Amino acid sequence: DWEDIVRFLRKLFELGEEVVIGDWHNHHREEIKRLIEWLEKHF
């Protein structure tokens, strides 16, 4: 279910905002944000 995936990604992203998950999070933050925005537009 796409909504569950979007919710999971958003939760992960919000957690990442508070607890910076090292370089991985910083590197992928923009991609995650773009992916969430893309999914919201399409689903």
Rank of each mutant, 00 (worst) to 15 (best):
V6Q: 03
L12E: 00
H28D: 05
H27T: 08
H42F: 15
L35Y: 02
H28L: 15
D23T: 03
W24T: 06
V20T: 09
V20R: 05
I5E: 00
W38V: 03
L15Q: 02
L9S: 00
F13Y: 09
E3G: 08
W2M: 02
K33L: 10
E40D: 09
H25Q: 11
L39Y: 05
E40F: 15
G22W: 07
K41F: 10
G22R: 04
F13A: 03
N26T: 11
E17L: 15
D23R: 03
F43D: 03
V6W: 15
E37Y: 11
D4W: 15
V20S: 07
N26W: 10
H25C: 14
K41S: 08
E3N: 06
R7K: 11
L9A: 01
L39Q: 01
W38S: 04
I21M: 09
I5R: 01
I36G: 03
L12M: 03
W24V: 06
F13G: 01
L12H: 01
D23W: 13
R29T: 08
V6P: 01
F13L: 08
R7Y: 03
I21D: 09
I32F: 12
I36K: 02
R10A: 03
R34Q: 09
R7C: 13
E30I: 09
E17W: 15
E30Q: 10
E14G: 12
E30M: 12
I32H: 03
L39I: 08
H27V: 08
F43Y: 05
N26M: 08
E14N: 06
W24K: 09
L12C: 13
H27C: 12
E30F: 09
K33A: 10
K11G: 04
I21K: 14
E17C: 06
I21V: 10
L9F: 07
W38H: 03
E37F: 07
L15Y: 05
K11R: 13
V19W: 08
E31S: 12
I5Y: 04
E37Q: 10
R10S: 04
V6E: 03
K33I: 12
D1T: 13
I32Q: 01
L15I: 07
K33P: 01
E14L: 08
E14P: 03
N26G: 08
H27N: 10
K41R: 12
E18M: 14
E40G: 08
V20L: 13
I21L: 10
E17D: 06
E17R: 14
E3A: 08
H28G: 10
W38N: 02
E18K: 13
I32E: 00
W2Y: 03
D1W: 15
E18D: 09
N26Y: 05
K41M: 09
N26F: 08
H27G: 06
L35C: 11
L9D: 00
N26L: 06
L39D: 00
W24S: 06
E31K: 13
R29V: 10
L35P: 00
H27Y: 07
H25V: 11
N26K: 14
H27I: 12
E37I: 11
V6M: 11
L9H: 00
W24L: 09
H42A: 10
E3T: 11
V20I: 12
D4I: 14
V19K: 05
G22H: 10
L35I: 06
E3M: 12
E40N: 13
E30W: 10
W24H: 06
G22P: 13
H42Y: 15
E3P: 08
W24G: 05
K11W: 15
E18W: 14
L12Y: 03
L9R: 00
F43N: 02
R29K: 10
H25W: 15
W2L: 03
R7N: 06
F43W: 12
